[in-house]
């Protein structure tokens, strides 16, 4: 089985600060990590390899420093890694990112299964996984919490949906995005670190991928960020006093006052 895992390097904080003047993320001084959801994607890829054989290739689009994250994926057990990096990719929105990553997958000769995280903790859109699948014209299943069954032509998974679990299946090749429940990612092994040191991360640019440059980077990004702001903290709720009966009575009164009932 040939698996490709897409990982994004993100700032190590769940509270990404935004520069109010430029509306961009402030990345300076924040250490970079692999998007936490993507570590589950890597782990799942490695587990598939351990069970069914095959290879796990990791790809990422980003600046040269992303090599560090790709090496970490190798130390965990991935076979090889590619960095999609080019000035022409700078300023990509989710559409351009999806197109570029899909081009990377095509360059690598496709895959039986592509695994993404459910979303990136900085951009948070959850669009890139499905975007890649659409660009490649293959099926995708999001929020996967368990792979029930997989063979050369089909995959059966459990996916998280509001209030329950949905069992879904599709033909391969396909793309899945995974949630935290799917596994417990391993730490890199100490021996894997030496392997990562020796592994050269190949950098693929616009020319290597043969992409249509009107579809990459700023030029290929129709998204216009008009304003980014931190949502205001919601007003505190009101605590109702008294025993259960009293509380229920007050609650009904309040709801009536608010014309909810």
């Amino acid at each position: 089985m040939k698996v490709i895992v897409c990982i994004k390097q993100v700032p190590d904080t769940t509270e990404v600060k935004i520069d109010p003047k430029t509306n961009t993320l402030i990345r300076e001084g924040v250490p970079s990590i692999i998007n936490p959801f993507d570590t589950y994607a890597i782990e799942e890829g490695i587990r598939l390899k351990e069970t069914y054989g095959g290879t796990v290739t990791v790809i990422s689009m980003g600046p040269p420093q992303v090599k560090e994250s790709l090496k970490e994926a190798i130390a965990m057990g991935a076979d090889d890694a590619y960095l999609l990096s080019d000035r022409a990719f700078a300023g990509s929105d989710t559409l351009a990112t999806s197109y570029t990553l899909a081009s990377g997958v095509r360059f690598l000769g496709g895959a039986d299964l592509i695994i993404c995280g459910k979303q990136a903790i900085d951009g948070d859109t959850a669009q890139v996984g499905p975007g890649i699948a659409e660009e490649l014209d293959i099926p995708h299943i999001t929020y996967v919490k368990k792979i029930r069954q997989i063979d050369n032509s089909r995959i059966v998974v459990e996916r998280m949906v509001e209030g329950g679990i949905e069992v879904a299946s599709t033909t391969l090749p396909a793309l899945i995005t995974v949630v935290k429940d799917i596994n417990q990612p391993r730490l890199p092994s100490l021996k894997g670190i030496m392997r990562a040191k020796r592994t050269e991360i190949r950098v693929l640019g616009a020319f290597d991928l043969g992409v249509d440059q009107t579809r990459t980077g700023l030029d290929g990004s129709p998204t216009e960020v008009i304003k980014i702001f931190t949502p205001e903290v919601r007003a505190k709720g009101e605590m109702l006093d008294g025993d259960v009966e009293q509380q229920a009575r007050t609650l009904v009164e309040r709801l009536k006052e608010a014309r909810v009932i």
């Binding site: 730490l187 092994s189 021996k191």
Partner: peptide, 27 residues
Amino acid sequence: KDMGFFGLPFPEEYDGVGMGELGYVVA
């Protein structure tokens, strides 16, 4: 054991981690 802690200073051909005394010291 799985992570490699038991073979830190030994070369990889002996199934060690191969990071020498310096790697051993940092670990």
